[in-house]
C-alpha cells in the first residue's frame, strides 16, 4: 500500500501493433529478404539489396552484406572490399569482417572498412564478437580457442557463447553450459545470422531457420523456391 503513495501507473495504456520481424534470410538466389510473421508460418518481404549477395549477417539494427566487390549495409553504406565471401559479426555499432578468399581482416564502422593484420592459424570458419572468439579448421577438427569440437561441415559461433555445428545429418546446438540440442537437418553446409535470435541453416534442399533463444529452440523451413 505504501508504494501507491509514490507510484501511479496509468490505466490509459496505448498499444502499437505490427507484424513481427524475425530477421533476414539469404535466399537461394542470393537475395537478402526479410522474414516476417510467426515461426513455421513466415512470409518473405522484398529483397533488401538490389544485387545478389554472397554473404550476409544481420542484427536487430542492421544488416551487412558482402557482394563480389563490396561490403554494403542496409543503411545504404558501401565500401569496396576484396572479392569472395566474408564472415561478418556485429559488435555494437561496429562489425568484424573476415574476407575468406584473401584472408584479410577488417572492422566495419560508419560505412568504412579498416583493414588489420590477422593470422588465425588455420582456415577461419566463424567469429564471435563477444571476447573475439573464432573457430578455425585444422586437420583434426574444428577448434575454438583451445577446445577441439571435432569434424563438422560448418560451424557458427553464437553471441552468448555456444555454437552451432553441422554434423552427420544434424545441426547441433552446443550451449556454454555443456548441454546440447540436436536438430535433424540433412545436408547443412552453412549458417547465416538472421537476427539476434535466429540463424539460417543452408542446405541443399532448402533454407531453415533455427531459433536459438534458450527454452524456445526450434527449427522450421523458410519459405522459398529451393525445390
Amino acid at each position: 500500500m505504501k508504494i501507491f503513495l509514490f507510484l501511479l501507473i496509468s490505466a490509459s495504456a496505448w498499444a502499437q501493433i505490427e507484424r513481427p520481424f524475425m530477421g533476414v534470410m539469404l535466399d537461394e538466389n542470393g537475395h537478402a529478404r526479410p522474414v516476417i510473421g510467426a515461426a513455421a508460418a513466415a512470409a518473405l518481404g522484398d529483397p533488401l539489396f538490389d544485387a545478389a549477395v554472397i554473404s550476409l549477417a544481420c542484427s536487430e539494427k542492421m544488416c551487412l552484406a558482402k557482394t563480389e566487390t563490396a561490403v554494403v549495409s542496409s543503411a545504404g553504406e558501401t565500401a569496396d572490399a576484396p572479392p569472395g565471401a566474408a564472415l561478418m559479426v556485429f559488435s555494437g555499432d561496429a562489425a568484424y569482417v573476415y574476407f575468406v578468399e584473401t584472408r584479410k581482416f577488417a572492422i566495419w564502422f560508419a560505412g568504412r572498412l579498416y583493414l588489420f593484420d590477422f593470422e588465425p592459424g588455420g582456415d577461419l570458419l566463424s567469429i564471435r564478437a563477444n571476447g573475439f572468439d573464432y573457430a578455425i579448421a585444422r586437420d583434426d577438427g574444428i577448434w575454438v580457442g583451445n577446445q577441439n569440437l571435432g569434424p563438422a561441415n560448418a560451424i557458427f559461433l553464437l553471441d552468448g557463447g555456444g555454437a552451432l555445428l553441422a554434423v552427420d545429418g544434424q545441426v547441433r546446438l552446443l550451449r556454454p553450459d555443456g548441454t546440447e540440442v540436436d536438430f535433424a537437418v540433412s545436408g547443412a553446409g552453412g549458417f547465416v545470422r538472421m537476427s539476434d535470435r535466429h540463424v539460417e541453416v543452408i542446405t541443399d534442399s532448402g533454407m531453415w531457420a533455427l531459433d536459438v533463444e534458450p527454452g524456445r529452440e526450434q527449427i522450421f523451413l523458410l519459405p522459398g523456391g529451393s525445390r
Binding site: F6, L7, I9, S10, E18, R19, I36, A38, A43
Partner: peptide, 15 residues
Amino acid sequence: AGSSFLMRVSFPVTG
C-alpha cells in the same frame, strides 16, 4: 498472411 502480431503496450507512470 495470418494472425501473427507484435504488440507494444506503454503505460504512462507517475512516480
